[in-house]
Design a protein around this nucleic acid. Sequence first.
DNA 1: TCATTGATCAACTGATTGGTTGATTAAGAG
DNA 2: CTCTTAATCAACCAATCAGTTGATCAATGA
Lengths: 128, 128
Amino acid sequence: MEQDALGSESLDRAFMALADPVRRAMVARLSRGDATVNELAEPFAITKQAVSKHIQVLEHAGLVTRSRDAQRRPVHLDAAALERLTAWIDQYRLIAESRFRQLDQLLGAGVSHHEQENTPAKKKEELK
Amino acid sequence: MEQDALGSESLDRAFMALADPVRRAMVARLSRGDATVNELAEPFAITKQAVSKHIQVLEHAGLVTRSRDAQRRPVHLDAAALERLTAWIDQYRLIAESRFRQLDQLLGAGVSHHEQENTPAKKKEELK
DNA sequence: TCATTGATCAACTGATTGGTTGATTAAGAG
DNA sequence: CTCTTAATCAACCAATCAGTTGATCAATGA
């Protein structure tokens, strides 16, 4: 049932990585081209060690990769990893939206209600 | 600075809310219909207080809403909030992908004049 | 060789989080 | 009224995290 082809921990790290404005700004910067730690550190008032940690978080989350070019370690954004995240979210968003449309048809047009509906049947599953 | 029309803190909370397997399972469950705290707690081996906190996290992140039905407080998934997240990710994913395609063409032409690219010798990476 | 630059490692601190137990509110049902 | 159910509040604890300073590594250039 779980089509988590990319493991729960991987999603943990990916979403956690994006749950920080500094790292999101880095993603935004990297979308325009590879950059080094120092270049990524410039806009922020934090030490380079902190920036290095942020990049390690992004790397461990699979969102960026790194290569070596002399002393420099350019950081590269992995667009495919971003796509995997949107795929996970859309999976459930589309289910919810289609369910909402079904309900809207059942209630008939013109009935403006607040969005609450009950599940037709309670499925009590036990998995621990 | 931030061109986030949604506010940085809102994105912080939304991504952070999804960076937890319990809360993601709740989102998956809620995509199939509204549910109460107790219903959401069933699959997990944690107390209902902990589940209540998880739901508060989702609610504070704007991913779910709640209403009142007698004693029950059904939780409702907000599909529009999920869409805002995918929109944020796609914004940068598409930039990165278009840049990747541009670079791919320039490699065929020979000379790169891209101002932001630091690694002219970059070549295609393997797709996963 | 030595100095410089880019980047990381190690240890520490303060703040935050996830979970618990126990008490409490709110709304019915008897 | 009391009793039960649903859910939250409050206090607390262990674990984790963001950021710092200081030392170290790796590659290059003098």
